[in-house]
Design a protein around this nucleic acid. Sequence first.
DNA 1: GAGCACTGC
Length: 798
Amino acid sequence: MAKGKDKQGNTLARILKAYSSGDLDDKLKPVEKKPGKQAHPRGTKRARDGSPVEETHAITKPKEPRGVEAGLKERQEKRIKSENTKSTPNPKPFGKGAQKGQKPNPLLEARKALPIWPHAQSIRAALKKNNVLVLTGETGSGKSTQVPQFLLSEPWCQKCIAVTQPRRMAAISLARRVAQEMSCPPPGRVPGAKVGYSVRFDNATGPHTRVKFLTEGMLLQEMVRDREMEEYSAIIVDEVHERSVNVDLILGFLKNLLSDLENGRLKKRKNPLKVVVMSATVDVGALVQFFGEGSKESEDTQQTLHSDVSSTLVGTQQNQDISTCYIEGRQYPVQTIYLPEPTQNWVESALIHIFQIHRKEPLPGDILVFLTGREKIEKLEKLVNEYAEGLEDSLPKLLVLPLFSALPQHAQQRIFMPTPHRTRKVILATNVAETSVTVPGVRYVIDCGKSKIKEYRNALGLESLLAKPISKSAADQRKGRAGREAPGKCYRLYTEDGYNGFADRTQPEILRCDLSHALLTMVAAGIGLRDVFSFPFLDPPPRGAIERAVALLHDIGAVTEEAEIANDALTMAKFPLTPALSRVLIEAATPERNCLEDVVDIVSALSTEDIFLNLANEERKKEDAEAARRGFYRRSGDHMTLLAAVQGYLEETSDRKAWCAKHFISHRAMQNVVKVRKQLLELCQRLSLVPNSSSSVDPPTANASPEEHTKRVLQCFARGFMRNIARLMPDGSYQTLVSKQTVAIHPSSVLYGRKTDYLLFTEFVFTNRAWVKGVSAPDVGALEEVMRKVVLGDGDGE
DNA sequence: GAGCACTGC
């Protein structure tokens, strides 16, 4: 190593040391540091999921035909048609008693058959009386489609009703369904359309929209723009039990808004705002307490509510402003079968159960297996196919279908295709099948009892992705998947004691994520930095987590030394990006860097799924892919490599799909990159980060050499990701400068296996070890300039 | 030598 370089490195390390010593943190006024600083990180290392464990019992290879009865019943197999929209709760036979002679309206009859239908009057009455209704309804009750229609003709409902959904697909399909039921034109900008939807990249609302389905993120953005929600008469928050960060923010904002309205602090609204909170499971008590001022402990609430299973409405004494309502679901019984003894090797156990079910149970009845991730899915897929070859001819065939979200769309669609004759489907799925995708035809569920969960470690600024035991509610959700069409069975690959040891509910995301983005949103909505500590969270995150997020925002210049909101913070909040990536964009727009367009391309690629297809399984293709992509690879690392790939795609104008196939690049991902890129460029334009096109602009860094250009781009990333710098150690490992964490370059990086003095990375995940992804190798000088400017406050960075 | 699932002016 050259002496000069080493010296420079030391300078850099010194700067960062000063930086991390807390001098700066102390200047943040609202942060009350506890005397005992978090000295050492909580144990992050865990045994890798599914690490080799001594096998306790050998698997019996199915060779002798045993199940005679299995062959007899297969004739009757008949696939029940089912739609993959949550908006059609069990198209069961309805309207048998529909009066003949009158013109039959099948849609209306279907609505009348929904469990929620008889409750329409009491729901209207509840909202006439109170402004808040907490409605719990199980799967298939029809609440998402019917409640907005029940309310539409109420006298207080002059404006629009918003219905939030956690997922875009659900928002769109619900809007289509409700438009159909209301005999309106399908959602769109046409004047007649009363039902619309609004999701990222797709706004299908018009001047006459009365019911608007939108994703939680979209409503949040609207709240930031107009905190009085003038446009709406009612806001329905659906699927609250999933407890996304966004839904928690929405609930907090709504609570603030309701109390401001009640206390006359807001003047714009004429009519009160009605809020309906809908949830699948029994968090009623918590929600009622949350909206019911929160000051009084309402011990009786829970009991009162639980005794109210059959009737509809309860006004509790403590919380007179809140109505509650319970709607029964429509679900067939599912038998639960536990393991007698716990097992470590649940992949093998799943294998045994699949074949036991297949031998014992008649068709139809597909099997849905919940596993943790792609690796286990592919392992089990191979095993099942292997053992299926030994199946006697009298038994039906097995069709194994993997299902995880990284799977190409056409492969995911296979689960909806009709099952071939005398065949049983075995779907091996991740959590996608728990909420996002409804797999038709399932009567048997096998649940491994684990799922991979992302958690953020405040002390390290590191997220971990580890397989952990699921909660009781998640286990019950999985089990419910067996009873959508007929009575079913659920095999749990754990003991009953194991189940009893699960947490009741999955920990809400807000308690296990980096809060900097949430804080930025709150700040943009007019909440002062000091007030974030008293924001009404349904589950308040620990103070330390908020402090850490404030410190992060300070890192990137969203919070000033005086603990005030910086102007840049409001700009950053307007980007659909993490605060760090927003900072990178702002940096790229400065005259010294002048590389906004290229940085937008890279940021677009970083904020979508991986554009490089993963071909780990296909050995031969892997080498081809390496060769096909080599043209994009850049010495400086992943960021410039992404830029080359995105630009290559943009330059291809004839057949981009073929271009992607040729270069082993995901077309789906690239289409998304282009959408994000367009959106970001428009935002930059609107936020005046980009000079008006009328003025004569130099092409980006026209005067810079390629090396200088790369340096500038990486300096932008260094500005957003100051803590994400690691240094090569004498033993060949890398250690982060600030938190002294040993990290390894992820195998997906173009720098994998390379040694370089410094690494700058944009992602940091702990799985079986601490990996860094999105890695570049900047010049030390480039890093130092940024650090000096930021940490030491040097005006000009020289 | 490896990536649970969602989302966003």
